[in-house]
Computed example of a mutant assay.
Amino acid sequence: MDATKKEERRVVLVTGGAGLIGSRVIHDLASSFQVIGLDIDPPSSDRADVDWRQCDLTDDDNVSDTLQAIRDRWGSQLASVVHLAAYYDFSGEPSPLYEKLTVEGTRSLLRHLQSFDVEQFLFSSTLLVMKSSESGLPLSSQSPLEAEWDYPQSKLKTEEVIEHERGRIPALILRLAGAYDEQGHSPPITQQISRIYEKQLESYFFPGDKDHGQSFIHLDDTVTAIRCAIERRAELPPLERLLIGEEEVLSYADLQDRIGELLHGQQWPAIRIPKMVAKAGAWVKDQWASGDNAPFIKPWMIDLADQNYPINISRAESLLGWKPRHTLRETLPQMVELLQRDPQKFYEINHLPVEHLHSR
């Protein structure tokens, strides 16, 4: 493709472009669009089809200057703004960045985009803004909301910001299930795998309903959903919320047994224990831990052990012409195969304590 044709390609702006999802989205879109990647720490790249820009969304002046530079280079027409940048910390520790980056960073971005011709603003929210399904019936985007900790609360607040600040910009909010791939890249899944692999005592105990579970989504299917949303942007309602995930949900017990069979050739029991006992144990481990040895399970997580997130994705299938091609059940063997073939690589990729491997 010559330089003139490259200039004619529609422009897509991706925030958080260097992240787990963002890097894959940019790689996928670059063959069809002129992609602009924003990140506070952009990678070095000499690709002509990706224009990387350093941008700190917590700095309103920096956002303004960055968008002005984009206008000067690429004009004011943007086919889509894929907004992935957000703060996230699985430790559950409070942070001002939930407000400064996720919420107010989005407000700043939207306000400075008002002078552009933006055909779509696509925001990656989370399935965790939804109220857990106590009945076991699948959730839809119209189901009740109940964000229970800082991360989903910041996403839900940002959804409200988008509704009030988008002006005439059409907005699509994708409430994404937890992402994973063949290497893991999902803390809840890889932590459960590591506990069973190491035969930790706590791998046998669970403080919630072991028949409950949550939807997940393969990273490739996440990227495909975003691409489909961009391609169908002209056909979508001016403001839409969609659930993106797999309809097949493995319960905690199912996941336990499957991982146990793959690793040790036998099912792995999950014995239910009282929440107060689990909280006390988690608190003690957390107090004794230091540095990188801090346990994954925190006392505040115990109250969320009963959460149940089966979903109905029929609206996403209808509006986007999309459905998942992968399942967690089919991908688990590949995760475990990597762990068995190269334990250190698996632990490093998934930020697990490598020193635990030496004590097995």
Rank of each mutant, 00 (worst) to 15 (best):
H326F: 04
C228R: 07
D56P: 04
L145R: 06
T331M: 10
E104D: 14
Y347T: 07
R315E: 06
V14R: 00
L242P: 05
A79R: 12
K100Y: 13
M335R: 01
G265D: 10
P310F: 12
F90Q: 04
G291C: 06
S186D: 02
K279H: 06
E355R: 07
L174H: 06
Q214M: 15
L201C: 02
G208V: 07
I349W: 03
R10K: 11
N312V: 08
R53C: 00
Q153W: 02
T106W: 07
Q334V: 13
G167D: 02
L13F: 05
I313V: 08
D49Y: 10
G260N: 13
D49Q: 07
E348P: 01
P94R: 09
G17A: 04
A270P: 10
L57H: 03
E99A: 13
S140H: 05
P324D: 09
Y88G: 06
E134F: 12
D117K: 04
R360T: 13
S32A: 11
P94K: 12
E348G: 10
Q266R: 15
P333D: 14
K131T: 14
L38D: 01
E8G: 08
E104R: 05
K345A: 15
D220N: 04
S132Q: 12
Y98G: 00
D46A: 15
P238E: 11
D117C: 12
A69R: 12
S290Y: 00
K323A: 12
Q266G: 14
E165F: 08
